[in-house]
């Protein structure tokens, strides 16, 4: 994955990842040294069921450029 980035702008991507699948998958990506853009910030959630729409809105409200929910 690569993003053409001439302006130097760095997006702020917040990921909410379920501890049991997506968070574990992100760990697995690490074990396999699969590189991805460094702008991604992962927040661990106990389960995607815990996700509150309020948290997504909060992220956008505070300036996140993208939010990924995974679970």
């Amino acid at each position: 994955m690569s993003v053409e980035n001439k302006s130097g702008w760095q997006p702020k991507i917040i990921v909410f990842a379920c501890n049991w699948c997506s968070y574990a998958a992100a760990d697995l990506a690490g074990l396999n040294h699969l590189e991805y853009p460094a702008e991604v910030r992962i927040i661990r959630t106990p389960c995607s069921g815990r996700m509150d729409p309020m948290l997504v809105l909060r992220a956008f409200n505070r300036g996140a450029d993208g939010v990924l929910l995974s679970g």
Binding site: K12, I14, R41, I43, T45, R50, D52, M54, L55, R58, A59, R62, G63, A64
Partner: peptide
Amino acid sequence: TDEQLVSEVDALC
């Protein structure tokens, strides 16, 4: 908790 997750979002943003 809501407070914990919100504080994480805020800290990252």
